[in-house]
Amino acid sequence: MTTLQQIEMAIKQLPESEIRKLLTWLQTYVDDRWDQQIKADLESGKLDNLISKVEADIAANQVRDLNEVLDNP
């Protein structure tokens, strides 16, 4: 049995309130890891080309309002 399988089995034994606490903790953990990855990508220059393109699009007025994009995909 793998560790993941053991974790899954243990979660199934938890009361609903503990599962909800675990879910909240896990979402916070995932969000923090995402933030760390974005920060690392920014610091390494990995996003420089994308940022330059966005800045050029903004300067050329080649952007749309976010509400327009969300309302008319």
Rank of each mutant, 00 (worst) to 15 (best):
M1V: 14
M1Q: 10
T2K: 02
T2H: 02
T2M: 03
T2C: 02
L4S: 08
L4C: 01
Q5T: 12
Q5H: 05
Q5K: 10
Q6N: 11
Q6C: 01
E8L: 11
E8S: 05
E8V: 08
A10M: 09
I11T: 02
I11H: 04
K12F: 02
K12T: 08
K12W: 02
Q13P: 02
Q13R: 12
L14G: 04
L14F: 07
P15N: 06
E16P: 04
E16Y: 02
S17C: 01
S17I: 03
E18S: 09
I19L: 03
R20K: 11
R20E: 07
K21M: 04
L22K: 00
L22M: 11
L22G: 00
L26F: 07
Q27Y: 07
V30W: 01
V30C: 02
D31V: 03
D31Y: 05
D32M: 13
D32A: 09
D32K: 13
R33M: 08
W34P: 00
Q36C: 05
Q37V: 13
I38T: 11
K39R: 14
K39W: 04
K39Y: 08
K39M: 11
A40I: 09
D41V: 08
D41E: 04
E43F: 10
S44G: 12
S44R: 14
G45H: 02
K46D: 06
K46T: 10
L47H: 05
L47M: 10
D48T: 12
D48Y: 10
I51F: 13
S52L: 12
K53F: 12
V54D: 11
V54W: 14
V54T: 13
V54A: 15
V54N: 12
A56R: 14
A56K: 15
A56D: 15
D57V: 09
D57A: 15
D57Q: 13
D57T: 01
A59E: 15
A60H: 13
N61G: 11
N61I: 03
Q62P: 09
V63I: 15
V63D: 07
V63T: 14
R64W: 04
D65K: 11
D65V: 06
L66Y: 05
L66C: 06
E68C: 00
E68M: 00
E68L: 04
V69I: 13
L70M: 10
N72F: 00
P73S: 11
P73K: 06
